[in-house]
Design a protein around this nucleic acid. Structure first.
Length: 273
DNA sequence: CAGGTATCCTGTCCGC
DNA sequence: TGCGGACAGGATACCT
């Protein structure tokens, strides 16, 4: 969604770093490097003076690729925003770019600092890193690739949160996908029947596509890349509905902690079989 | 050593 | 009304 909204506004245009700070956010190192606290990325790596060639996305990561090869990955974490809008809040701005020919600046803000920026020297380096760190994108995950990735004794919910299994599924859409596929989130990957994996792959594609279509939203204060509020939160079948009646069978939605995250599912519709 | 969990961080919401 | 605390999310360091 963010890529779709920003691509036509940024492609072919030159960025100029206008301000950087505060300097206390995570600058993620190349590859698996540890997040560096208190360090920052240079203006050159922040694409100062770079003409944007294209925006690439895989899972939750967005890459700005410049014509000279410089590449900057934006991870929004949970509260991050990348916006080209007049009403972008002024607090928690980490990087502000001027965009050639655009009235409003491009702003990366991240109040909770779970997000981060990662520079790469080239698109090739970016793809190498992504191939290592990320599985297939959720919007086009095939049943066979999902079957290959869903191995082991982990509960299927925990596997879905692993970006190396499927890139792009977070806590909310993991629950929603499992509900649509009628799979108990506690089911061990190795015990999933082939038809369940097929259903799950289709459900992931459906749920993510719907989220993108409706502006993608999770938190109440979520905004799109152009400043519009998202609406997908109203479409959730199980997430945030613990104790409320299932939209299919009216049975109360169960809530529990699984893989360290809040999990909601219908024990009747998603019965372990 | 795979799988579970603690940690980071701040805004929001709940109860006293 | 004010305030403390729990909680939410994504990624990863760390522990078992």
């Amino acid at each position: 969604m963010i890529r779709l909204a920003l691509a036509p506004l940024l492609e072919g245009r030159t960025l100029r770093v206008r301000s950087v700070g505060p300097h206390d956010m995570r600058a993620r190192g190349e590859g698996r490097g540890k997040p560096v606290r208190g360090a920052w990325i240079g203006r050159r790596e922040l694409l100062h003076g770079a003409r944007i060639d294209r925006l690439e996305r895989r899972g939750k990561r967005l890459a700005l690729v410049a014509r000279d090869g410089r590449t900057l990955v934006v991870q929004l974490g949970m509260s991050g925003q990348l916006m080209l809008a007049a009403d972008s809040a002024r607090t928690h701005r980490h990087v502000t770019w001027g965009v050639e020919g655009q009235r409003h600046p491009l702003v990366f803000r991240d109040p909770r600092r779970f997000g981060g920026l990662t520079p790469y020297a080239s698109p090739e380096a970016l793809h190498a890193a992504w191939n290592e760190q990320l599985g297939s994108d959720a919007l086009c995950i095939s049943a066979s690739r999902l079957a290959d990735a869903l191995r082991g004794r982990r509960p299927v919910k925990a596997a879905l949160l692993d970006q190396r299994v499927v890139a792009g599924v977070g806590n909310i859409y993991a629950d929603e996908s499992l509900f649509l596929a009628r799979i108990d989130p506690r089911t061990r990957c190795a015990r999933l029947r082939p038809e369940q994996v097929i259903a799950l792959a289709a459900s992931i594609r459906t749920v993510l596509a719907r989220a993108v279509r409706t502006g993608g939203s999770t938190l109440r204060d979520h905004r799109t890349a152009l400043g519009q509020p998202g609406q997908a939160q109203q479409l959730h079948a199980v997430y945030g509905r613990t104790g409320l009646p299932c939209i299919e069978c009216k049975h109360p939605i169960r809530g529990a902690r699984l893989a360290g995250r809040a999990t909601a599912w219908c024990v009747r519709c998603q019965a372990a079989r």
